[in-house]
C-alpha cells in the first residue's frame, strides 16, 4: 500500500505573526517557515506504517510556492520515499484554498492510487480544517478526522478521534482519508545522514494544470486586521488582595 501525505509550508508556530499595516495580509517576508506541525505528525505516522510493514511507499506532496521544496526535503529526511511539488503560486502571500488543494490532491491520488491519505487536521496559517474532508468528498472515500490513534488491518482502519465530548472510535473502509491530531505521535527529528540522503531522493515538479485544476480563490480577502488587544491588568500582592479585587470587580 502507498501512503500519500500532503504537507504544507507554513509560518513556524513559534513566530509572532505581524499583520501588515496596509491590511493586505500578514508579513511573510524573512519569516521562519516550517512544515505544518500536524503534517509532521502525519509524516511520522506514515513512516511508522512503513516500518511496521503495513505500507510500502510514503509519498509527500506539497502545493504552493517553489520554496515548499524545503518542506518536502524535510519529509524526505524524516523517511518519506519520494515527493511531489505542485507549484501553484509564485507569491508567498498567495494561499491556495483547501478546495483547490483537495482537487489537486484528488488528481495525485488518481495517478498514484494510494490506500491511505494522511493529512494534518488543520493548517496553522489559515486554520481552515477542511482539506482532508474535501478530498474524501471528491474521491467518494471514507474519512476519519482528528485522529489520535490509527491502526490498519487489511482493508479497514480503526481510528480514535478527538471530539468535543471526548473520544470516538470508528472503523473506516480503505482507501480512506485520515486527518491527524496532535496526540497521535511524537515526530522524529531527521538525522544528519538522513538529511544528506534526502537530497538524492526523487522530487517531481508539477503544475495545477497537469491535474486540470483552476486554483482561482473562491474567497476574496477583503482585508486582514489585528484582533482587538487586551489592556494590561492589575497584579495582586496576595491571595487576600486577589479575593478583594475579584469581589470588587463583581466577577465572583
Amino acid at each position: 500500500m502507498k501512503v500519500l501525505v500532503p504537507v504544507k509550508r507554513v509560518i513556524d508556530y513559534n513566530v509572532k505573526v505581524r499583520v501588515r499595516a496596509d491590511g493586505t495580509g500578514v508579513d511573510l517576508a524573512n519569516v521562519k517557515m516550517s512544515m505544518n506541525p500536524f503534517d509532521e505528525i502525519a509524516v511520522e505516522e506514515a513512516i511508522r506504517l512503513k516500518e511496521a510493514g503495513k505500507a510500502d511507499e510514503v509519498i509527500a506532496v506539497s502545493i504552493g510556492v517553489k520554496q515548499a521544496q524545503e518542506t518536502l526535503r524535510t519529509a524526505l529526511a524524516m523517511g518519506a520515499d519520494r515527493a511531489i511539488l505542485v507549484v501553484a503560486s509564485e507569491d508567498v502571500h498567495q494561499d491556495i484554498e483547501p478546495l483547490a488543494v483537495a482537487k489537486i490532491l484528488a488528481g495525485v491520488v488518481k495517478e498514484e492510487a494510494p490506500g491511505l491519505v494522511l493529512c494534518g487536521k488543520q493548517a496553522i496559517d489559515n486554520d481552515m480544517n477542511a482539506t482532508g474532508q474535501m478530498l474524501a468528498a471528491l474521491l467518494g472515500w471514507s474519512q476519519a478526522t482528528f485522529a489520535s490513534e490509527l491502526s490498519v488491518e487489511g482493508d479497514t482502519a480503526t481510528v480514535t478521534r478527538e471530539v468535543d465530548g471526548g473520544l470516538q472510535a470508528i472503523k473506516v473502509r480503505m482507501p480512506a482519508v485520515v486527518t491527524v491530531d496532535l496526540r497521535m505521535n511524537e515526530p522524529r527529528y531527521a538525522s544528519l545522514p538522513n538529511i544528506m540522503k534526502a537530497k538524492k531522493k526523487p522530487l517531481e515538479e508539477k503544475a495545477p494544470a497537469d491535474y486540470g485544476v483552476d486554483v482561482t480563490p473562491r474567497l476574496a480577502v477583503v482585508k486582514t486586521t489585528e484582533p482587538a488587544a487586551r489592556k494590561a491588568g492589575v497584579m495582586a500582592k496576595s491571595v487576600e488582595e486577589l479575593v478583594d479585587m475579584l469581589k470588587g470587580a463583581g466577577v465572583v
Binding site: 474567497l219 476574496a220 480577502v221 486582514t224
Partner: peptide, 16 residues
C-alpha cells in the same frame, strides 16, 4: 474569521 491562531482577523467575500 480568525487566522494564525487568532493573531489576525480576515474578512473574506465569497463568490460561491
Amino acid at each position: 474569521r480568525p487566522i494564525y491562531a487568532g493573531n489576525a482577523i480576515q474578512t473574506v467575500k465569497s463568490s460561491d
